[in-house]
Amino acid sequence: MIRALPPFAAPLPPAAGKARRRARISITPLVDVVFILLIFFMLASSFLDWRMIELRAVARGQAPGVEGALLVDLRADGARLAGALLADAELERQVRERLARKPEQAVLLRPARGVDMQRTVAVLDRLAIAGVRELGLLPP
C-alpha cells in the first residue's frame, strides 16, 4: 500500500514542470502596491524638527510674579528696558549684567499690540541666552 505512493524525489513529468513555471508569482502587483505605499509615506510623513519653549503667563493682578521683576516692554519699534529703547544685543548684555548681580532675577516680557509672535520668540530666545530662568509673559 505504502509503495503505491510516488516518492517525493520522483522527477516531475515534463508537462507538470511547465505548468509550475507558468504559475510563478508575478512581482508586478507587488511592486505596484509597494510604489503606492512609498508615495503615501512620502506625502504623509513630515520631517519637521520640532522644538519647544515653555511659556508662562502672568496675569495682570498677580503680585508674586510681578514683584521685583525686570520688565521688558516690546513694541513695534523695539524692546525697552526701564524705558530705554535698546537693540537686542544691548538688551541681552544689560540683562546679563543684572543677572550677574542677582541670579534669580525674574524677567517679564510685555509684547504690545501689533508685535508678532516671531519677534516675541526672538526676544524670548535672547533673554534665555542671557541666562534668565524666571521668564514670564505679561498681557499688554
Binding site: 503667563a57 508678532d116 516675541t120 509673559l137
Partner: peptide, 22 residues
C-alpha cells in the same frame, strides 16, 4: 499677534493649565 497668544495663555492659566509649551 503676540497679545493673542498671551491672552490665550492667561485663559489657560485660569483654567488650571500651568504648563504651556510653544
Amino acid at each position: 499677534e503676540a497679545s493673542v497668544v498671551v491672552d490665550l495663555l492667561g485663559r489657560l492659566d485660569q483654567a488650571g493649565i500651568g504648563k504651556v509649551m510653544l
